[in-house]
């Protein structure tokens, strides 16, 4: 079945002030589409983490969200610099965030773990010096 794009956004590097804006917008959209509170919560958590990752770690990027009759698909893509060691990045507690960011309550090394935990399917395409593309699917 054809998928429909419901959110298309551009996210700037370091734009903490707008962190969570897209996830909030998406939460409201999904609520209006009649998605259950539980599924909505999972999609919101996944989108928030991916959004913050772009703000904290990337050179900028964006998030597009698609719906099909069976699932919500969140696609986060940035223009680099790529995840140096994906295996480490997926370990709970591992983070490359600096102290300033950690003091704000980010960089606890739980972001990607949350994405993994709350998604039904997860695909991460990255590497040193590459762009990162993360596709998370949450089944309806």
């Amino acid at each position: 079945m054809k998928e429909q794009m419901i959110l298309k956004s551009r996210i700037e590097k370091g734009d903490f002030n707008r962190g969570g804006e897209n996830s909030s917008k998406l939460k409201e959209l999904l609520r209006k589409l009649g998605v259950t509170a539980d599924i909505n919560r999972r999609v919101t958590i996944v989108t928030y983490e991916l959004e913050m990752n772009i703000i904290i770690h990337s050179d900028g990027g964006g998030i597009n969200v698609y719906v099909t009759p069976d699932a919500v698909k969140v696609v986060a893509e940035d223009s680099g610099p790529g995840i140096e060691d994906l295996e480490k990045a997926l370990q709970p507690g591992y983070s490359t965030a600096n102290d300033e960011i950690r003091n704000m309550g980010f960089g606890a090394g739980m972001g990607l773990n949350n994405v993994e935990y709350f998604s039904d399917e997860l695909e991460i395409d990255t590497g040193p010096g590459k762009r990162t593309r993360i596709t998370a699917v949450i089944n309806l």
Partner: peptide, 26 residues
């Protein structure tokens, strides 16, 4: 730690924190 709060805090709860910046509102 905001990722933990995202994962564990649920609707209608009270959230106690010492963070006071904009992302807390988000």
């Amino acid at each position: 730690l905001l990722s933990n709060v995202m994962a564990k805090a649920e609707a209608d709860m009270i959230w106690i924190t010492i963070q006071g910046h904009q992302n807390v509102v988000a």
